[in-house]
Amino acid sequence: MIGIDIVPHYAEEGNEFAKKKGLDHLVSFMTGDAARMDFPDNTFDTIIMNDAMEHVGEPEKTLEECFRVLKPGWHLYINFPPYYHPYGAHLSDAIGIPWVHALFSEQALIDAYKKLVRDLPDGSDRIAFRFDKLPDGRDTISYINRMTIKRFRKIQQGVVQPAVYQREIPLRNQLQALAKLPATREFFVKMVVCVYQKAK
């Protein structure tokens, strides 16, 4: 079993954690870009992207790579909170206002977040982890790719492998109707769930 992440320090942390839990004989961690993996074709029985699809820089290419390294007949499990989930901006460690990213500009969110965390011991790490500079010098939230349900469904249209299980989980059972209405769906679905099975 292999865990892969593009953030370099996670591999060391993961391997230390596995050793501490006595699981290092089963699992190892590495640094890598899921859109460009070094594994041979048809390597894995199970690939899981649990809360990862909203973070990858190249979602289409990542899916292509998953299907390349997945063995025929086996499964790719994807789940992610869509961008307009109440905390879909992934800034809720400092900004606990639901749907704040639907109300304010990206720059306003970045400025507020920086102000709120700058005096924390790990404030600079939190900022560096989430934000980056665009070529024109503006700040951007680089930690996420703003994966909406609509965008994911569009990406799926380009996937030739069959999706064998799909669900959109509402924020609350009482909100199921809002999670199905086209006008409010993006805001009231807390998790998009999808399982692909690579064709044999």
């Binding site: 079993m1 899981i48 973070h55 499990y77």
Partner: peptide, 27 residues
Amino acid sequence: MFCDKTVLDIGCGGGGKTCYYATYGPK
């Protein structure tokens, strides 16, 4: 999902979830 499977966890972070999956006995 995991028992006796060759598993790849993409976006594993610090490994907490991955190690939990590993308790199900992957290869």
